[in-house]
Design a protein around this nucleic acid. Structure first.
Lengths: 247, 247
DNA sequence: TTTTGCGGTTGACATGGATCAAGCTAATAC
DNA sequence: GTATTAGCTTGATCCATGTCAACCGCAAAA
């Protein structure tokens, strides 16, 4: 399928593919662009890709040429050490970008794996750089997105370096809740797309510890858990847990 | 002191200030630029700042307008949580950039503190964006620098999430050694600019644990420690320690 | 020179989370 | 519909690191 159709009559499919018609445009890369600017971005992101649950969007070591905007679905990224250890470095949802780590060395440094059937927009990076030389707001927004990733990583470092198990899990749940909210979903009720082991890997804990912390939260009436279904019953309680650490 | 002297006769001071005459230019922002391009960058970085040991280059919350290239000296960055906990998020040395985290929210999100008397070049960010719209190599290199920061942070997450105390310290020492080497210093012998407590904060450990790990390395003949003076005696040994974790 | 104090080392003990193990639940395959 | 299995929960025990405490040594201040 050719990515650019020169036809005047634009098919429904193509319309739906464009940033200008995407309901995530205010969360994603086109944030803050004018109508006209967004149409110029549309040309870049015309290639869409479906990724089945469990499949790789890209693998560590693979050549880097595009970043990806998640249109729907849910991903995790993980890094592998030579000795077999690995760690989940993030969970990404609709409107978020994947692949920014690949810019530095021109190859990907982590694996990106779909946790449910997903769709992404591939954005050829060199074309994004060209366009952002022309559109100031795009350039600036892209820099903000990269910077936000750095800030997010500092948050995770904080979490891993200073928080205890239950604080980590509370922070994790509140973060998910906040991101779901930003996407128009319930802040209090959601399905986890990842296993306890993946949560543990992300939080620097073993799956048993994650499970126990969930049970503890449930006993204390903070949340209701049933496998992957989570209901947050007491948000302030979780927040308190996050900040009032034992001396 | 006016940052731009229009005089034809350029003073020695100004010459020394320019990127084109900086011996760090191949590590720092101007990496890969042509002579002519580098001169255009010179105009941006004309403002230099001395920071005394213990002083802040910037504080969390402060308005963001510039990033900083370290010309000489040594810094740490740390984040503070509301409840008083804090964590060192990085140690930066000559040729490295500070302040990238501030782009996302237009204010700094961490403190940058000099660990020894230092000098930085302030780079007004909006002017850097303008210039990088004109100089492709500058734009691309800047993106790489930001991406590298993300990759580095993933490394720290890995370290905090999966490594034990001695592995963390070994990784830390090898990383320092490698960065000193890149700057033309000895790979095997250096002074630490930070306290055990700061190392511990960075590595998610208590200072006593750091101290014990140093002693242990010394007993095993891997390094010689005397306070802040470190000599690495067995680099492969340290590397092995980093990868052969207990099951 | 002496004093002061911060940073570092070391020891004894406490504990949070890891590990090992068993059983349970719910999705997926047959 | 039943069988299979991956994922989850819970209990018992262990150990790495945290905590508390004492002391050392060097460098800055007096």
């Amino acid at each position: 399928m050719p990515p650019n159709t020169a036809a005047k009559e634009v098919s429904l499919k193509v319309i739906k593919t464009a940033c200008s018609n995407c309901n995530l445009r205010e969360l994603c890369l086109p944030m803050g662009l004018s109508e006209e600017e967004m149409h110029r971005l549309d040309d870049l992101v015309s290639t869409r890709k479906r990724i089945k649950r469990g499949d790789f969007l890209y693998r560590a070591g693979q050549e880097f040429d595009s970043i990806y905007a998640i249109r729907s679905g849910f991903f995790k990224t993980d890094v592998l050490l030579e000795d077999g250890r690995d760690q989940v470095t993030g969970f990404q949802m609709a409107g978020e970008l994947l692949g920014l780590d690949g810019i530095s060395a021109e190859h990907h440094t982590c694996n990106a794996i779909a946790l449910e059937d997903s769709e992404v927009c591939a954005i050829p990076f060199s074309r994004l750089e060209s366009l952002s030389r022309e559109i100031v707001t795009l350039q600036h927004h892209f820099h903000k997105v990269m910077s936000r990733e750095i800030v997010r990583d500092h948050g995770v470092m904080m979490l891993l370096g200073t928080m205890r198990a239950e604080e980590r899990l509370a922070a994790f749940l509140l973060n998910l809740s906040q991101r779901f909210t930003a996407r128009g979903f319930s802040p209090a009720e959601f399905y986890l797309r990842m296993t306890r082991e993946e949560i543990g890997s992300y939080l620097g804990l073993k799956l048993e510890t994650v499970s126990r912390a969930f049970s503890r939260f449930q006993e204390e009436g903070l949340i209701a858990v049933q496998q992957k279904h989570i209901r947050i019953l007491n948000t302030p309680g979780l927040k308190r847990l996050m900040t009032h650490h034992a001396p």
